[in-house]
Design a protein around this nucleic acid. Structure first.
Lengths: 357, 357
DNA sequence: TTGTAAGCGTTATCAA
DNA sequence: TTGATAACGCTTACAA
C-alpha cells in the first residue's frame, strides 16, 4: 500500500553517508524540505497535498528506508494493534496449530502477535502475563491448564483486559471461550467404540485437578458408558511430563478382563499409550484399540494411523482471535463459541477382539 | 522484582470508582501525592527516596494495578527489548520447537517475542518483515526457505538490522547462522545405512531450488555414496504442500532393483514416506528402511519408531537468540555456529533385506 | 530527597 | 495546502 514505494530505488542505503540510526519522520521531513506534519499526512494518505509535495516526501522516505515507528504511533494512538498469545507449550502440535490460526487471522487484520508460553509452570505464567500487560497488548488469546482456577485469569479480570480462552471450557461460563463441546465429543468417541463391539473401555487422562478439559472429557466418557449400561473401565491419570506409560498401564492390561479399548484424553497421550501397548507386547488394534482427542496432523501419517476426535485447531485459534477483535469494544463476558468436532477414523481403533480371549 | 508489590493488596481494583483507563505514571503520582519523577525513581530503584515516600508510591501503584508501559519506556530508551521470530510454519514440529527455544531464552533475558510465519509465501514473508521492522524489533531470528536467495534478508542487510538464521546454512557464510553441518549429518545417515548392508539408497527431498537445507543434505548423501563406491539411488523431489507420496514413489519401488533404504530430507517427509510405503504394500523396515532428518519428538512415539538425524531444535533456537543478543552491539557478520547432531536409531531403519529378493 | 522540564516518534488540532 | 505545536507515557538531567 503506502509502503510499496519505500524500498530504495537504487538498492543502496542512501546517499553516501551511512545512516546508522533508524530514520525518523524528522529525517524524512528534513530531506524532503517539508514539515513533519506534511510527511505524516502524505504517508498516511490523510489530508491533501500537492502531487509534487507527495513526490518529494515519498522519495525522501524511500531513500531513507523510512518505516513509521509503530511505537511512536502507538503512544499517540493509545492502542497497539497487538495481541498476546499464551499457551502451555509450543511443542504440542495442537497448540502450535491454534497459534498458527491466531497468527494468520491477526496478520490478516493488521495485528501483531506477542507470544509467550508457560510450560505448565504457574510462575512462568504470571511473569508472562505481566510482560504482556506491560506491552499493552489489546487483548489475549490463551489456553490455561484450568480455567476455573487460574490466577492469571483473575488478574486479567481485575485489570479488565479482554481475553478469549481457546480449548478451555470453564465452568464459570462467563469467561469468554472458544472450544468444542468436550462432553459430547467424548461421548461420540465412546459411542463409536461400543458400536465396534467394545465393552470394556478404559481411559487415559491428564490430571483432573489440573485440567478442565481432562475433567470434561472424563465426564463424557463416564456418561456414555452409563448410557450404554457398561461399567466404567480403568482410569489412569498421568502426568504430562512423564509419557513413559508402560509401567503405569501394565497392571490394568493383564488377564482376560483387560479393556479392549482405551480413550486417551489427548493425542500426545494416545501416541504414548500406543507405544506403551506395543512395549507390553500387545497389538493395536488387534488386542487393544486406542482413540485420541485433538486431531493432530501427524496422526494421519503414522502406522497404525491414529483414530482421534478432531478439534478444528486452526479455526479455534482464528475464531478466538476474531472474538477478541470484535469484542474489543463491547462485552466479552459470557461469550462462548462451540466449534464442531469430527471423529477421524484410524487404524488404531478397530472392532473388539472376538470372545476367544 | 520491583513489580512484586504491584498486585493489589485488597484484591479489588481500587477505591470504589472503577478505573477504566489503564493507569499511567501520572495517576500514580497524583494518588501518592508526589511527582512523576519520584514515581519513576522509586519503581525503578534508581535514585534514593525516603522510606515513607517509597511506601506511598508503592501503595498507590499497587492500588491502581499500575504496570509501566513498555511503549512509553521504549520510546524514551530507543530500544524495545523485543525480538522478531519468523518461521515458515508453526505447525512443523521442528520449527515449533526452535521457537520454543527462542521464546524461553528470550524470556530469560527479559525480551519479548513477536512472532510471524510465512507459509512459504514470499508475499507474506515480506509483509511480515515490514511489520517486524515497524515494531522496531532489535533483531530477528529467522528461518527462510533459501538463505542465498532471499529478498527479506536483503532488506535486513539494507537496513542493517541484526539477524541470525536458524537451520539455514547459507553459501554466503557471512550471514550469521546457527545450524548443524548438514553435509556431515547426511553422510552419517548414509554411512549408517551402508553399515547395515544397504547398497541401493534413494533420497526423498524437498525442492532443491527452494531450500538450502535440502541441497546440502542431498550433497552429503551423494558424497557418502560416492565414498562408499555406490551408485546414487533414485532422488525424488517433492513439494511440501502435497505429502501424498504413494503415486510419486511407486515407479521407483517396483522390481528387484528397488532401493532398500530411503533417506528423507526431513521428518515430515519421512513420515509421509513410511505412510506411502505401507500404502504400496511394502513393510518398513523389512522391505524398505527409512531414515529422517530433524529429530521431532513424535518420531519416538510412533510405530515403527522413526530413525532420524537429530538436530537440537530447542538449543538451535536458544543459541540463535543468544547470538543475536550478544551480537546486538558488535558485528554479526560471518558468525556461524555449528551445533552437534546425533543419529537416533529407530525401528524404521533396519538391516538390508537378505539377497533373496 | 524531590520536582521541573525536555525529549523519544508519532498524529492531530489549529492557524496561517 | 502547509506548518507549528501539543499530546501520548515514560526516563533522566538538572535545579531546588
Amino acid at each position: 500500500m503506502v509502503r510499496d514505494g519505500m524500498r530504495t530505488t537504487d538498492g543502496r542505503v542512501t546517499d553516501g553517508r551511512a545512516m546508522d540510526r533508524v530514520a525518523t519522520i524528522r529525517d524524512v521531513a528534513a530531506r524532503a524540505g517539508v514539515s513533519i506534519a506534511t510527511v505524516s499526512r502524505v504517508l498516511n494518505g490523510s489530508g491533501n497535498a500537492t502531487p509534487e509535495t507527495m513526490e518529494k516526501v515519498r522519495a525522501a522516505a524511500s531513500d531513507l528506508s523510512f518505516r513509521p515507528s509503530t511505537i511512536g504511533r502507538n503512544l499517540k494512538a493509545a492502542r497497539t494493534r497487538t495481541v498476546g498469545v499464551l499457551v502451555p507449550s509450543l511443542t504440542n502440535p495442537v497448540f502450535a496449530e491454534s497459534v498458527a490460526g491466531i497468527q494468520e487471522a491477526a496478520a490478516e487484520a493488521g495485528y501483531s502477535v506477542l507470544i509467550a508460553s508457560t510450560d505448565y509452570d504457574p510462575a512462568k505464567e504470571s511473569r508472562a502475563i505481566e510482560g504482556l500487560l506491560s506491552n499493552r497488548v489489546e487483548g489475549l488469546v490463551l489456553t490455561v491448564a484450568d480455567a476455573d482456577r487460574s490466577g492469571s485469569l483473575d488478574t486479567l479480570d481485575e485489570v479488565r483486559l479482554p481475553y478469549v480462552l481457546a480449548y478451555n471450557q470453564p465452568d464459570r461460563a462467563l469467561r469468554a471461550h472458544v472450544s468444542v463441546d468436550n462432553v459430547a465429543a467424548s461421548r461420540a468417541v465412546v459411542e463409536r467404540m461400543t458400536a465396534l463391539g467394545h465393552r470394556r473401555i478404559g481411559m487415559i487422562a491428564g490430571r483432573f485437578r489440573q485440567s478442565d478439559r481432562s475433567r470434561r472429557r472424563h465426564a463424557g466418557w463416564q456418561a456414555a458408558l452409563a448410557d450404554a449400561g457398561l461399567p466404567p473401565g480403568p482410569v489412569v491419570e498421568v502426568d504430562f511430563n512423564d509419557l513413559r506409560l508402560a509401567h503405569r498401564l501394565a497392571p490394568y492390561l493383564e488377564g482376560p478382563e483387560r479393556p479392549t479399548a482405551l480413550f486417551a484424553s489427548n493425542d500426545m497421550l494416545a501416541l504414548a499409550t500406543i507405544r506403551a501397548l506395543r512395549d507390553l507386547g500387545l497389538s493395536v488394534p488387534d488386542d487393544v484399540s486406542v482413540c485420541g482427542f485433538d486431531g493432530i496432523e501427524v496422526g494421519r501419517l503414522m502406522s497404525p494411523s491414529l483414530a482421534t476426535l478432531v478439534q478444528p485447531a486452526r479455526a479455534m485459534g482464528a475464531t478466538a482471535f476474531e472474538c477478541l477483535r470484535t469484542g474489543f469494544s463491547g462485552d466479552l463476558q459470557g461469550r462462548a463459541v462451540m466449534l464442531p468436532f469430527t471423529l477421524r477414523p484410524g487404524e488404531s481403533l478397530g472392532p473388539a477382539p472376538s470372545k476367544s480371549t
